[in-house]
Every structure is written in C-alpha cells, then in structure tokens.
Design a protein around this nucleic acid. Sequence first.
DNA 1: GATAAAAGTGCAAACGTTTGAATAGGGCAA
DNA 2: TTGCCCTATTCAAACGTTTGCACTTTTATC
Lengths: 347, 347
Amino acid sequence: MKLGQATIKDIARELNLSASTISRALKDYPGISDETKRRVKEIAEKMNYRPNAIALSLRKSRSFTIGVIIPEVVHFFFSTVISGVEEIANSRGYNVILAQTNEKLEREISSIETMLSNQIDGVLVSYSKETKSFEHFTKVLDQGFPIVFFDRAPAIPDAINVMVDDYQGAFDATSHLILQGYKNIVHLAGPKTLKISIDRENGYKDALKRYGIEVNPAYIITCPKGTMEEGRELVSELLASHPEKPDAFFSCNDIGAVGAMMACRDAGMKIPEDVGVVGFSDWQFCAMLEPQLSSVSQPGFLMGARATEILLDIIEKKLDPSTMEKTLVLETKLMERDSSKKLSQKN
Amino acid sequence: MKLGQATIKDIARELNLSASTISRALKDYPGISDETKRRVKEIAEKMNYRPNAIALSLRKSRSFTIGVIIPEVVHFFFSTVISGVEEIANSRGYNVILAQTNEKLEREISSIETMLSNQIDGVLVSYSKETKSFEHFTKVLDQGFPIVFFDRAPAIPDAINVMVDDYQGAFDATSHLILQGYKNIVHLAGPKTLKISIDRENGYKDALKRYGIEVNPAYIITCPKGTMEEGRELVSELLASHPEKPDAFFSCNDIGAVGAMMACRDAGMKIPEDVGVVGFSDWQFCAMLEPQLSSVSQPGFLMGARATEILLDIIEKKLDPSTMEKTLVLETKLMERDSSKKLSQKN
DNA sequence: GATAAAAGTGCAAACGTTTGAATAGGGCAA
DNA sequence: TTGCCCTATTCAAACGTTTGCACTTTTATC
C-alpha cells in the first residue's frame, strides 16, 4: 500500500502500541507479554517489515560494514582475497563495501575518505603501487580507526599486516631451480615501491648465495608494469644481447613468467630442457599451460579470511591492537610443475 | 581530542552558532554571511570534519550505495564486470556493496534482504545456478525497487537486462569451426537452468543447420560443474566410446575447452590439425595457452559499466523503467586463434 | 484491605543531518 | 513613531531506531 518500506512506527500505529513496545517485542525483550509479541510479529510479517539498518547504524554508531580497498579487482590473487573477505564478513553479519584504486594514490585517498564518511567499522587495505607516503592512513589510524593491511605491508610502525612469506617463497623457488641444475637464473623483479617486490628479490638473492652462486646485477630485470608483453620484450632483449644466455627465470609474477616462456620459445629454447621457468602467485592458468608453469602459490582466500577475522576481532574488541601480534605471515607453497623440471625430464 | 569524529554540532558549539547555520555555511547556501562561511569552513577543516553519510542517508532516504550480487568473485568474467560497475559507480558518487552467492539460492535471498535493509538505492544481479523461482526478486521489483540483471537474464516479464548475445556468439563460433573444415562438432553445454546455456546451445544447433549439418544429440554433452576436470573426463569418455571420433569442440566456457584440449592431447590428437577447439568468454589465459585458444569474447567491463549506468539512471529518474527498452544486448567477438585454425595450418 | 512487588507499556531523548518556518535586529521611508 | 523590508541567524521537526526511566495496572503477601 504505502510507498516506502513499513517501519516500526507503522506497526505501532496499526496495533495502537508505542514504537518502543514494537522494538522490544521484535527483539524478544523480557517484559513484553507473549500475546503482544505474537501480534507484533504477525503484523510485522504481514507488512513485510524490514529493519532499517541505516537508522540502526546512526543510533549505534556502528554500521556493520567493512571496506576493502584493493588495487585491482580483475586480478586472480586479489579476487581470491575478496572472496575470502566476503565469506567471513558475511558469516559474521557484516557487509563489504568495495573500492578499487587501479593502483592510483588519488583513488586510494578518496576511497578511504568516502568509506569513513559512510561510517564503516573498519577497513582492509592493499595499497597502490603509487603510494609512497602513508599519511592518509596514519591520520585515521591515529584516531583509533581499525585498519588491517594485507599482502602489501606499508611502512607504518605498528600497522597490522597479513601477508605471505614472500622472501621464503622466492627463496624456495630459486633454490628449486638451482637444485634442478639451472645455473644462470634471471629474476624478473617488481616495482621497488612494493615491499613484496623487495622481499622476493631478497629471497632470490639469498638462495643464490646459499648455494654459492654470485648475484649478477644484470640478471635482475625490473618489470614495473608486470604485463606479459613487457616480460616478453625484456626477456627477448636480454637473450639477444647476452653472450652467455641465462638458463632459468624466476619471475615475481605469473604473467611475467608467461612472457618469459614466450620469449624463450621465440628464441628457439625448449622449456624445461634449455631453460627453466618459475612464476609467483600460482594463478589458475598455470596448470593449463604447456608445459605447466611452476609457481609459488599464495593463499589468497585464506589471506582475505584471516585479515577479516583479525579486523572484526579488533572491531568487536576481542583483540587489542596495542598488545596483539602485529604481523601474520602465511606460508607459500611451491607448486613444482613441468616448466622447471629439468631433472625428471632427463630420466 | 574527542573520541569520535567531529560533527556539525561540535563546530556549532565551537563557534557559538546553531547547527543549521553550520550546515548551510558548509554548503554555501545564500543568506549566510561571507564572514560566517569563512569561519565555519576554517574550523571544519581544522577539526577534520567529515560529513556523516549515514545521517544523511537517514534524512534523505537515499544511501548513494548500490549492491552487486554475483555468483562468484573469483571468475575472470565476473571480476571484469565488477570492475566496470565500480568504475561507473565511483565516478557518479555511489558506493558499491558486494555479495557473492557461490551459486547458492539461499545466499542470494539473504544477500538481497541485507542489502535492502541497508537501504541501497538499487541492485545489480546475476542470479545463481540454483535459482529457479524468482519470487525473491519480483517481490521487491513490485515495490518499485530498481533491479538491473546482467549476464543471466531471469524469467521475469519486464525485468531489465544487460546481456551478451550468447546465441550469436555461439553461432559465430560454430560457423567458424565449420568453415575451417571441421565436421563432427561436439558442444560442451552448461546447466539448463541458465538462459545463457540454452542460448549458446541454440546458437550451436542453428549454425549446424545453417550449413546443412544434422544435429547429433550424442554430441551435446552437459557439463553442470564447468570445471576443467569435468570437461577432460567427459571428453575422454566420449573419445573412447565413440567409433567416429568428433573433430571439434565448442565449449560454453573456456575452462571446459581447456579440459577438452587436454583430453584430446591424452588421446594423441593434435590441435588444430586433428581437432579444433573454441571456448567461450575469452579469459585472460586463452592467449597464453599452446596452442592459443580461440574463444568468444564477452565485454565484461562494458557490461558492468552499462548495467550500472542504466541502474543509476533509473535511480535518478533519468530513465523510466515502465517505458524504457528492457533489454540491452552487447555484441560478442570471436577471437580466432590457433586452436581452431585448420585451414591456415594447411598452407 | 492495605501495601508491595511484579508485569506490561509508554515517554522522551538521542544518533547527525537537513530544511521550512520563525525570529531578531537593523535600516529606511513615510 | 509606525510600518516594512532586509539580512543573518535560530527553532524545531523529521528520518527510524533504541533504551533508561517513569507510569499504570494487576497480582501477591501479610
């Protein structure tokens, strides 16, 4: 009948009761007669009553909504993270509001502003590649607002992070290549603004050192864009210009690894016989390639889920940000596939 | 100083003015002296004032938030849709709240309920595979609440849809296989609950008829799960059991197509010489496979963007749902790659 | 039959904002 | 002085809930 949604007041009018009685009856508060409760619920049902969460938010200064700020949605890893966030948030009665920054600092700043305006209870952030200063985060953190960072850990003291052991993952991947008999291992590195890039590079370097191989700076190629074309081009150039050709590639991402595979194929090199390749992230398609691409798998869903659990625990005061463990490191797992299996190939 | 955020009242107290004056000053209403405006803005800035969008929502009965209900986030196509939605919503000043159903009807129903409770202004929906009855949508549509469906069009008269021309895409893909000289074309079909599955199957059938090829029911295999393993198994079985082996596969999704490619390889058949394969959706990885997989590309970003534009236009009354065009069909594009190029291979 | 306790319900304020209407003070013409 | 119009500001209600307190009525106790 009415235009908008039925409210508590409408029910009150209908039954000649006060709004407070309706509110209490609906919530099964003690002190309301069973008969009244029954009638209220019946009418509520009939009028298709749906509590107005906005009014509740205003009253309680709690919105039961968390924000997620992410560089890109169209990204296998991040989409798995979102999935994990959504799953936990939903199961604990929270909504998820989403913003993607497209790796732009400006979008990051405006997103967090809008979200705060919308009274979110907390936010999960993976900051953009452009972000070098973290004031827009510290400003709100200082006000006691809960932020949990994931994947990309910011240079903020005492910030709460959920990340993957990028160093160890890279170390494992590089070690694996060495143990398979590859000697000249090139690293396709990510932008230096991201801690994960640096960690992965360090893992790579330390693995080489561990096995007594000298780190060759010319073998570390930075791929700022992280696209397949970029990887393909840079690797092609390297192969063309370098007298002693590299015989393995460890890329900081899977897409770059595919680029490397293509460049190698272009140069007539066979994978894994002539050259080994390992990627990072273990995107879905790794198992579909020919040969299947070895990669360091990152538990995206788990990361999203754990980060959300921590955030909600902080929001609900089950966890105290000042005394809690600040960093949660999740383990990676090297998925050894054909692209790096020189040894088994020899059999 | 204070615990929470500064409010209009705080500014009012600070300047010994009333809340209404502050509100008007901040919005540059006429009738407020320039001097007052200046002072108000200065203090607002200093106190780090941030308007409370929740209070505004309550007042205006408008939340400037739209919902997106989607089967899965970890899905290339859907993630591109989300990206398009986010882009347009953001540029027009709206928030996006996200829910994934994991293809469960129950989640779909509870998601829309929660969103309505949260006073969203409208919702974009791609319904789940489990959904057979649409009452939970018609109920809210009848109340005049704006819903735009995308990709999967529901059986609801007058519902507003943005979809892809699945029929034409399938027709094109099948025609392409025929023109390349393949004769026994198998179709890996999707669940019959989805209109897109039926449309694609019809496109396949009609293309066969168009070229005078009889439709063989045994060549239509339904893959309810749509996983790679499922495709691989079903195709392997078919190849093993069928005396006259099929020489091409048109799959209703890319993952199934990869399964088919693997099964063919397992059976010692060469792609594209012995068997042609075409997928649907043109996921990122298609161009990374060996051979590269031909596929029907769906404009996911555009679909998200257009659906959002339509939804916001309805919300903002720029478009009238009763008189507007109900269905927007976006074109697909066949990406012809090596997996289906028998002819050029022969040269 | 008085008194107290218990049961059931209503009042009113609060959350932060907007907005139509009212008010105060000043200037100016008649 | 009166009357009128400006300008700048305030009042108060409204959006839909919740909740401490007060109020009425019934029931129990002595």
